Computed example of a mutant assay.
Amino acid sequence: MAEPYTGDRIILKDLGFYGYHGVFAEEAKLGQRFFIDLELGTDLTAPAVTDDLATGISYADIYDVVKAAFEDQRMKLLEAVAQNVVEAIFQRFDGVTWVVIRLRKPEAPIAMVRGEAAIELHRKRQ
């Protein structure tokens, strides 16, 4: 078996969502933008050889699962939101062996001139 986080992968970047996650009451009331970058480890041999979507994983299906998991429940910590998304991906897509997720919060309520707050989780299927 391949080492985790190597080999074929599906990459989705800058998936944008509006959510109410955060520690502060204002975040729960007003909400803010979040962005998710994903890498999903999966064997892409069949879709590469057959050129048939039915042999792979639809990017649209991945987005739908991520959106539902992101919006499922309000959480205080980015880490918890990201873990919820990872668990949903593993539950829905049997062929995904690992996930790297970066959850970015460009308008975090901290004193930043530029930039964003973000976390990144690396998870492999148990």
Rank of each mutant, 00 (worst) to 15 (best):
I10P: 09
L77T: 05
A68R: 14
V85F: 04
N84H: 12
E120Y: 02
D37L: 10
D72L: 11
L15N: 00
P106E: 02
M75Y: 04
R125F: 06
G41H: 13
I89L: 15
E3Q: 14
T42N: 02
Y5Q: 08
I36Q: 02
I62W: 03
E26A: 13
A88G: 06
A25C: 03
R92I: 01
V65Q: 11
V99C: 09
G19C: 04
V113E: 13
F70P: 12
L121A: 08
T45V: 07
V96I: 15
H122A: 13
M112F: 04
V81W: 11
M75G: 05
L103C: 11
T97Y: 04
L30E: 13
H122S: 14
I89Y: 09
R123K: 14
Q32K: 12
D37G: 10
S58F: 00
A48I: 03
L103M: 05
G115C: 00
Y59C: 12
A69I: 06
P47M: 11
A117Q: 13
F35K: 03
K124I: 03
K105D: 06
E87V: 09
R74C: 02
G19Y: 04
H21Q: 04
K29M: 11
A82Q: 06
D64K: 13
I11K: 14
V86L: 05
V100L: 09
V86M: 05
A48S: 15
Q73S: 14
N84R: 15
D8T: 01
F70N: 07
K67N: 04
V99M: 08
R125H: 07
A60C: 03
A111F: 02
I110F: 06
F34I: 06
D64I: 01
A82C: 05
A48Q: 09
I101F: 04
E116G: 05
A54L: 09
L44T: 10
F34C: 09
S58A: 15
A88D: 06
Y59M: 10
V96P: 02
T55I: 01
G7M: 11
L121T: 12
L40W: 09
E26H: 13
Y63A: 09
G56H: 10
A118E: 14
A88Y: 07
A48W: 06
R125W: 07
G115W: 00
I62T: 06
V65S: 08
F93Q: 04
A88H: 06
R33T: 07
D14Y: 00
L38N: 05
I57R: 05
M112H: 03
F35V: 07
D37Q: 11
K29W: 03
G7I: 11
D51R: 01
Y63C: 09
D51E: 08
A54E: 13
A117Y: 05
D61T: 03
K13N: 14
D52V: 09
P109Y: 08
D37T: 11
E39A: 15
I11R: 15
L40V: 10
N84C: 12
T50F: 01
R125K: 14
I11S: 14
Y20W: 01
E116L: 10
R104L: 10
A25D: 15
V81R: 10
R92K: 13
A108L: 01
A68N: 09
A108I: 07
L103K: 09
L53V: 14
R102Y: 05
V96E: 04
Q83T: 10
M1W: 00
I57N: 00
F35W: 07
Q83G: 05
L44A: 03
Y59T: 12
L53W: 00
I110N: 05
K13S: 13
D43N: 15
Y18S: 04
D61L: 01
A28Q: 15
R92G: 02
G16P: 02
